[in-house]
Amino acid sequence: MMRQKNISIYISRAVISIILVITCAQVSAQSYKKIKKVQEKDSTALFRGFSVSADLVGPLMLKLSDYGQYEAALKINLKDKYFPTIEIGYGKADHQEATGINYKTSAPYFRVGCDFNILKNKHDTNVLYAGFRYAYTSYKDDINHPDFKDPVWGYNVRYEVTGNSCYYHWLEAVIGVDAKIIGPLHLGWSVRYKYRLASDEGAIDKSWYVPGFGISNSSRLGGTFNVIIDI
């Protein structure tokens, strides 16, 4: 009886000791990892330069259709991770439709936002980024139609809207690529999802084209193709 009691006490002490040893071993392993991590801290400078770019899609649209924009951007590189961006552009449209309606507008616009490098290796020469923009434009549009006859009374009807003042606020979600070609020259493209925040489309309550946003709608997709120069 006495012997059985001694054996069970011995087993309990052994189990407790083993548990304590395992616990201590894990704690020291984690401390080692933490020390190792601290030693690998990024030493890259905060300001890594900036770049300027111009979009090629907008001028191509103006060439091939009757609306489009000229756009340039300034992007600041922070630690190869964060890229605060300002984009400024000038959009215009002079569209004649088969219905006889002519729509004309032109105005500047701007966007501000930030892109984030989503590649694992942040210091690669090429960048895959995702980001956002806030955008705003204030513009005036002119809409007119050749004179036509009232279908019931036969009067001559003049349809003309001139200098209709409007504004548009919208958000963009951006995903894009920046690839180094040679020296400071990069090429890149981006795809954007645009979402209208608020707008006032004047007395007629509708716009067809909004500078910087595109064909008026509550949301739409767009894209850019950029020539980028590192400064």
């Binding site: 309606i101 139609h145 007629i204 067809w208």
Partner: peptide, 13 residues
Amino acid sequence: TPHFESVDCNPSY
């Protein structure tokens, strides 16, 4: 007041 829906729609008031 002239009303505008879209360039694809006929003019209306």
